[in-house]
Design a protein around this nucleic acid. Structure first.
Lengths: 346, 346
DNA sequence: AACAGCAAGTTAATCGATTAAACACGTCGG
DNA sequence: CCGACGTGTTTAATCGATTAACTTGCTGTT
């Protein structure tokens, strides 16, 4: 079961390995032309004895591995990972690259090991991905050709891309304003310096309100843990407000909190969207679309960010140095937004 | 920015590259012993000039790449992928292996390319994963060391692992029987030859019923599309039954269908678990636990299957040839199961 | 004195492909 | 008839590490 080498093909075709190499890597750059007769003989022989090139040897010789390394903190807990990976992977495949994946589980020592393992593998580029939008201190040892995905490296001018959370927050809020709402709550996550998304979405919310000439009511900015139970508790707090201060619409930090808002509304006997409109964030797979009614939400552009990172990594696209590329977050309209039940007057 | 090679270390330490190689790969198998003085000098030099081994060259020489290939159909659409990948990846890391990931998007031509690319990369083993439990015709070109993950190759004796769906279906049903239910429905997916899980879970359901001496009522086996809307429609069908034939508990093919069952129950004014008990399947991340009330379900052992496949691939575990290893599906108890509202009499 | 035995290294072949440079053999213009 | 040139192919160096086989210089034994 010994693998068939180029030398075997050369032997079978009665030529030298140089000829075989030139024939099989048939780019026009091959200096000299091989007679088409010889070419045919070589190809036939290669086919017949089942030759498959050894890319390890090729990589060593050419110093090009056609491989990129992807370092991520956790592929495990987030369903977004898939979309990001898919973006990276699709682009890699389209250009004949292979992706070597390492998950560090957010452990600094593992990260160090992963980086040196990938550098040792001669990866041509590296993508450093976080599964939640964060600012990070770029770890040592990352090559110059590193691209940061879903994180901003501090004091580092290498390319990076993150979602445009602020525009997304504004779009979500605008969606509610456009439906006629004036009392719009923001159900935020708990304060966390690492969770940059929370603050940015809030800024988007405030700016959309300001643009529409609506004064922000601090009572309508509530917080909870960023899961269904937190969203439910925060929403219950809002619904306990005296009726004239109560929101007619809420924008939730994420889809899981929106699930909680659905529960709270249901328990209060409120129908969505008749009595309360809800907008989420993330467009979580198998969740947002499956809620009853399906949730209007803002999508996190993971697939697009993955592609972008890979394009930059492969040098197919220039990135402005020093600033993270803000990827737009499109709003996904479903059925959880309607006009306010009592028309809003100024 | 030229990479530092072993020759540079040798020069810096005043020894030959052979010595450097022996020192740095410090396994006891190194035939001759190098004086500890020289060892120290080599290590110091390597450290000082920042030597990192070139694993491409090493792989070429040793014919061992310490790399395994993972071929999957779709990492994109399923949130399970992460758990499977995590299992594969954790084990790889623990043993110093790297994972090269290729997603074929279920395209035969891409699959062919992926296989030959991985073989060319000299991967030491290959894992062929499907994201949904299926039977597959093993594609040509896969090396003997391939392990099948979440799929059964037909007429192939290479190792494979799939979830023990039948035992899982029985466990879910048993959970409801133990709570006192006798009229237990199975909300199944639509018939689909490829979806082996559906039939197996149904068999488990039937056997648990039989074991408890409960006659299966064909009216209680309904089907719908395998998402929330299908689950909802199927559940509505069940709730439209005359009260004495109506189920007091339902076992859903998956968690998304269970979400639909929740909607249907809610709209019918039924409380879960007081008026209706529900058990799901999959333990879908960020879904099952976030429902209100949190859903009791059967977990798909993706992480464990990923580890198992990698253990077998690395030769750390023997697999019985010709039969797929059935990985147990543990039941995850949450709050959607309670006693039937009217005590069940025989 | 002769030599076995060992410790501590070194030399050089090797893995499988790529590629610059050399070579062999026409052919053609002057 | 000679050299210049073109065409088609081969030779051999190279990528960076590993490792079998060999060298060198001692020590200890008979």
């Amino acid at each position: 079961m010994a693998r068939v080498r180029m030398a075997d093909v050369a032997l079978a075709a009665g030529v030298s390995t140089a000829t075989v190499s030139m024939v099989l890597s048939d780019d026009p750059g091959t200096r000299t032309r091989i007679s088409s007769e010889t070419q045919a003989r070589v190809r036939e022989a290669a086919e017949r004895i089942g030759y498959a090139p050894n890319s390890v040897a090729r990589s060593l010789r050419t110093q090009r591995s056609r491989t990129v390394g992807l370092i991520s903190d956790t592929i495990v807990t987030t369903p977004f990972a898939g979309r990001m990976l898919a973006g990276v992977n699709d682009l890699a495949r389209e250009h004949g690259y292979l992706v070597v994946l390492v998950d560090t589980d957010d452990d600094v020592e593992r990260e160090r090991q992963a980086i040196s393992a990938l550098v040792g593998q001669q990866v041509e580029a590296m993508i450093y991905a976080r599964m939640w939008h964060r600012t990070v201190a770029a770890p040592a040892g990352l090559p110059g050709s590193t691209v940061f995905l879903d994180c901003r490296p501090v004091g580092d001018s290498r390319p990076a891309t993150v979602p445009d959370e602020q525009a997304g927050g504004a779009a979500a809020t605008q969606e509610l304003i456009a439906a006629g709402h004036r009392r719009i709550a923001y159900v935020d996550a708990l304060q966390d310096a690492d969770l940059v998304a929370s603050g940015l979405r809030h800024q988007g919310y405030l700016s959309a309100l300001a643009r529409a000439g609506i004064a922000a009511d601090p009572l309508l900015h509530v917080r909870g843990s960023s899961d269904a139970s937190g969203g439910r508790a925060a929403t219950e707090e809002l619904l306990a407000l005296p009726v004239e201060r109560r929101p007619t619409a809420i924008f939730c930090f994420n889809d899981r909190m929106a699930m909680g808002a659905y529960s709270a509304a249901r328990r209060a006997g409120l129908d969505i969207p008749t009595d309360l409109s809800v907008v989420g964030y993330d467009d979580q797979q198998l969740v947002a679309a499956e809620l009853d009614p399906p949730l209007t939400t803002v999508a996190l552009p993971h697939y697009e960010m993955g592609r972008w990172a890979m394009e930059v990594a492969l040098g197919l696209r220039e990135a402005e140095p020093g600033v993270a590329f803000l990827m737009p977050c499109p709003i996904i309209r479903r059925d959880s937004v309607g006009p306010p039940s009592e028309p809003a007057f100024t």
